[in-house]
């Protein structure tokens, strides 16, 4: 087990050491102390290692993650797990705006609440938020799933493409071209799988959720839709 204290050594050295790990490395578990809200901690990881961060982190923690499992024992700033490709990011506290932005894959689990634009432009990631999410979440979301155990803020799923949104609580309002859709068995199965991946199997009932998706009315330019944008 490797341990690193950001109060003692520079962030660049930590990230460089993590990048240098080979896929078959024996240094598979890292503990990072003293994050103190620093930005860009554990970004660009590309090995199946596990990283645990003891405290609050700033912007873009675990950005562009591949393969690695990153646990943040604290809150996270803007863009946690942005553009993640694969792997697992778990935030024990709350997260700020643009969590999981543009991410292509992997799983992001937030134990607390997420701010605005959660899952903006998401491209395949699965996001599970145990609390509530802020306004404009899943804006232009292209693929993947966003599961929210609490409530969603204004303009959920504005200009949505093919991402699927599951919300258990209330939705303040839906954005342009986002509509509620029928929960069929395939969706309950998908939702169950995501809840299971987030460690919530048996604790949360998939049939309590509503599903939201794209009405696909804005997929092609049409003058009669001008007022919808």
């Amino acid at each position: 087990m490797s341990s690193y204290d950001l109060n003692q050594a520079p962030l660049r050295d930590l990230n460089r050491a993590l990048h240098a790990l080979r896929p078959d490395t024996n240094e598979t578990h890292w503990t990072i102390n003293g994050p103190d809200g620093r930005h860009a901690i554990a970004v660009g990881l590309d090995a199946p290692i596990s990283v645990e961060i003891e405290g609050n982190v700033g912007y873009y923690c675990a950005g562009m993650n591949k393969l690695a499992s990153v646990v943040i024992n604290g809150n996270a700033g803007v863009g946690v797990a942005e553009n993640m490709m694969s792997g697992f990011v778990h935030v024990r506290g709350d997260v700020s705006q643009s969590a999981g932005a543009t991410a292509h894959g992997g799983l992001l689990v937030v134990d607390g609440n997420a701010g605005a634009r959660c899952g903006i432009s998401m491209k395949g990631i699965d996001i599970v938020v145990k609390g509530s999410i802020g306004h404009m979440s899943a804006f232009m979301a292209q693929a993947g799933t966003l599961t929210v155990l609490g409530d969603a803020g204004e303009a959920l799923g504005d200009s949505l493409y093919e991402a699927r949104l599951y919300v258990r609580g209330s939705v303040k309002s839906l954005g342009a071209d986002c509509i509620e859709k029928e929960m069929r068995d395939e969706h309950r199965e998908q939702l169950y799988a995501k809840l299971q991946a987030a460690g919530l199997a048996g604790e949360v009932n998939p049939s309590e959720f509503r599903r939201y998706g794209s009405a696909r009315r804005l997929y092609h330019f049409n003058v009669d839709n001008a007022g919808a944008y």
């Binding site: 930005h39 860009a40 912007y59 873009y60 942005e82 705006q97 903006i120 232009m140």
Partner: peptide, 18 residues
């Protein structure tokens, strides 16, 4: 999608460098 304004841009540049 994940930054607005010059103060955030500085942090985004820092992330890409990291």
């Amino acid at each position: 999608p994940d930054w607005t304004g010059p103060d955030d841009l500085e942090i985004k540049i820092e992330e890409l460098r990291e």
